[in-house]
């Protein structure tokens, strides 16, 4: 057997409990983090001002305190001053949303104190609190609309058991992603919405490929149990699942490791979400489908658990 022609034979369905436990632990840890330390909300949602300077020398605690004092003398009491960037030579200053006059005063004071020019102002950003509120609302609305549309599509393409399994797998992925945001302290900004919705689409996409194969195999394997059908289908599509997730993950990891800073916060949650999406299609959605089908078998007359299926 050559490396590009591996015949997979994993008893995925037989180890259902193992998969559910793994996911359960991650989600539980994430939820604990979510309810104790909460999410790391970014500027886009909270509103505020961020200013980044290149100081050309490591930002020491003394410098940090000096900058905090400059802010205080300009009437900005609430601030966060952080050393960032290459060798901590950049300083990032986060405050509540400042008006143009205060911000200009602060920037000028820092520039004159450390003999910096406007070229050393790497970036600055301001989002007023009202825009932040709008963003929060818009995000929730967009996610709800996308979820609804996809549910309609699933309902249209799949029967009930498959649809329910796909949706639960989707909820699983979203929970894993939110856990990742909470545990890894990733900033929740506008890319958060994009990452969540992309994972939405990708996860369903992955589940569809496997369920499509299950549908084919139900017709071919007339004597087999649901468990066998699911196992065969998952293994038949395993190479595809791995190759696809590998290529997408490859693109994302390169974005994460080589890409600019602003892309990192976007690539990391996508990396986690898409891995989770591929995992959940195989290890969550497929076992769930078997569970639902077997339940249905128990309830309907003359059809025992693990018996040959009547319809898809």
């Amino acid at each position: 057997m050559r490396w590009n022609n591996i015949k997979w034979n994993i008893d995925v369905i037989g180890k259902t409990k193992v998969w559910f436990t793994i996911s359960g632990i991650i989600i539980l840890a994430g939820l604990i983090a979510l309810f104790t330390i909460g999410l790391n909300w970014g500027l886009d949602f909270t509103g505020g001002t961020v200013i980044e300077f290149n100081m050309h020398k490591p930002v020491t605690i003394a410098v940090n305190n000096e900058i905090t004092n400059i802010l205080k003398s300009n009437g900005v009491k609430d601030s966060q001053v952080k050393a960032i960037g290459p060798n901590n030579t950049h300083v990032s200053i986060t405050t509540p949303s400042l008006d143009d006059k205060t911000r200009t005063a602060v920037i000028n004071a820092i520039e004159s104190k450390y003999k910096l020019t406007v070229k050393d102002l790497v970036s600055s950003q301001n989002v007023s609190a009202s825009i932040g509120k709008e963003m929060q609302f818009g995000t929730i609305l967009a996610s709800a609309v996308a979820a609804l549309l996809m549910l309609i599509y699933i309902g249209f393409r799949f029967n009930f058991e498959m649809g329910a399994a796909a949706v639960l797998a989707l909820i699983h992925d979203i929970l894993i992603m939110i856990s990742a945001y909470a545990l890894l302290r990733i900033v929740v900004d506008t890319p958060f919405v994009a990452a969540i919705l992309t994972v939405f689409g990708y996860s369903i996409n992955d589940t569809i490929v496997i369920f499509d194969r299950i549908r084919d195999n139900i017709k071919l394997m007339r004597k087999a149990s649901y468990k066998e059908i699911a196992n065969v289908s998952v293994n038949e599509t395993m190479t595809r699942s791995i190759n696809t997730v590998m290529t997408v993950l490859l693109m994302l990891s390169l974005m994460y490791f080589f890409g600019p800073a602003s892309i990192k916060d976007f690539a990391l949650p996508l990396l986690i979400g898409i891995t989770s999406g591929a995992y959940s299609s195989i290890f969550i959605a497929s076992p769930l489908w078997v569970i639902f089908k077997d339940k249905e078998g128990k309830n309907s007359v003359g059809n025992k658990v693990g018996n040959r299926p009547q319809k898809a």
Binding site: D44, M135, G138, L141, A142, V145, A146, L149, M150, Y153, R157, T190, P191, V193, A194, L197, T198, F200, G201, Y202, I204, N205, D206, I208, V209, D212, R213
Partner: peptide
């Protein structure tokens, strides 16, 4: 074909919602 088509449609749904409802950067 069916699998490819179905899977692309779901990604398109997500992308269209983002395009029409998302903020500038998205």
């Amino acid at each position: 074909f069916v699998a490819v088509f179905d899977s692309n449609i779901t990604t398109l749904i997500a992308a269209f919602v983002l395009f029409f409802m998302g903020a500038g950067t998205v």
